[in-house]
Design a protein around this nucleic acid. Structure first.
Lengths: 215, 215
DNA sequence: ACCTGAACACCGTTCAAGT
DNA sequence: ACCTGAACACCGTTCAAGT
């Protein structure tokens, strides 16, 4: 009743992301997937030619939802540049992860890419595409060409880096609107100052006292 | 008689490099190694705990002969800075490869590193070590701190890049002494000019007319 | 000490047969 | 159309037995 009769490729991809984020790239295995979905191996090979095909589909899916789809959803012209930036950044870092491997999909993909050149190539493409879009928007906000590019690079690198740290407890939470405002200010062009603005605007999460294991 | 009775770890490492350079990282397999050496699999596991141990030994061997050993052989103070540079570059790019996988070991290792994070980490360390040494020597030749570092980086990146292209036919052959002379000139500090000096001093190998496949 | 030979383990892949 | 179940293939690893 509540259970679906037939599996779709999306079911396999979703299960594979779950394995990726929970147990790493090497956990993307046919038997694990089948256990997760309650079927036997033969079923997998009806949907995919081989494991490489599923992996390619995973990466391509990620590329679409975490890059092209987000960019495409931005072309509605009612957004101010500032709001567009905020939404883009929040979407890139969070939206595509909701349905699949949880909030750490982006980090898991980059970890996977470190050991798989095919994955790495797609991640590079995604970075390029996102950066080109951010640069274009920066330029549309009145910044000059090189300035637009360098600010876009800085903002993107900073946020990707912070996202990596999000896994650890006691992370600083980032104030994305405040950061965007600092990045859009035309004058100072001072990377260090902008970086300082981000750090200053980051509200540290309540940091629990370090607990010693006392019994 | 002419054949050795007993295999050494070095024999396995050498055979593994042969497989790496001829057929890529995935060809480093126990059965291939055994066929190459004329023994059975059990022999391998007497010498190494597992395949990962052999791979680690390969990378560590490369790191030693292609980095630390070359640097250590340079501390004899009879060399002029210019000759030291020339010898270092030639040794780094050629010497460590003679005994093992031929002249393309450096390229093969970097290709391997693209798909294996453990290998990649060692390559990064080697690059850092080589660059630190080159920078130090630049500084000893009268260049200022930042200038020494940027020139060392440029020279190293250029030569690594050219080495990658060496595999293809019709390569430009590089005039290392001429390049070093250009890099040691203190004044202009112009990266593009130095780059031009290298390209100008590269004597193109006889470039055959493009042959159309006419039958 | 060094190696053989055979077995085992693991996991991707195939395929005839079911519904 | 979608899946089961069992077999096979591939290759890393183990180990008792040889010299």
């Amino acid at each position: 009743m509540g259970t679906k009769q037939t599996l779709t490729p999306e079911d396999w991809i979703k299960a594979a992301f779950k394995l990726l984020t929970s147990s790493g790239p090497k956990a993307i295995r046919v038997d694990y997937l089948c256990k997760e979905l309650g079927v036997t191996k033969g079923s997998f090979y009806w949907h995919f030619a081989d494991l490489a095909a599923l992996q390619a589909a995973m990466v391509e899916h990620w590329r679409r939802v975490a890059t092209s789809d987000v960019i495409a959803s931005m072309v509605s012209p009612e957004l101010s540049p500032r709001d567009l930036f905020i939404r883009f950044i929040e979407d890139i870092l969070d939206v595509p992860t909701r349905e699949y491997g949880g909030p750490m999909t982006e980090v898991a993909i980059r970890h996977w890419a470190a050991g798989d050149e095919a994955v790495h190539a797609v991640v590079r493409n995604a970075d390029t595409e996102r950066l080109a879009f951010l640069t274009l928007q920066m330029r549309g906000s009145g910044l000059t060409g090189p300035e637009a590019r360098s600010r876009a690079t800085l903002i993107y690198a900073t946020l990707v880096g912070l996202k990596q740290l999000t896994g650890e407890p006691g992370l600083p939470r980032m104030d994305i609107p405040g950061f965007v405002d600092a990045m859009l200010r035309p004058a100072p062009s001072n990377a260090a100052a902008v970086q300082a603005a981000l750090v200053a605007s980051a509200t540290p999460v309540r940091c629990p006292e370090p607990q010693l294991e006392v019994q």
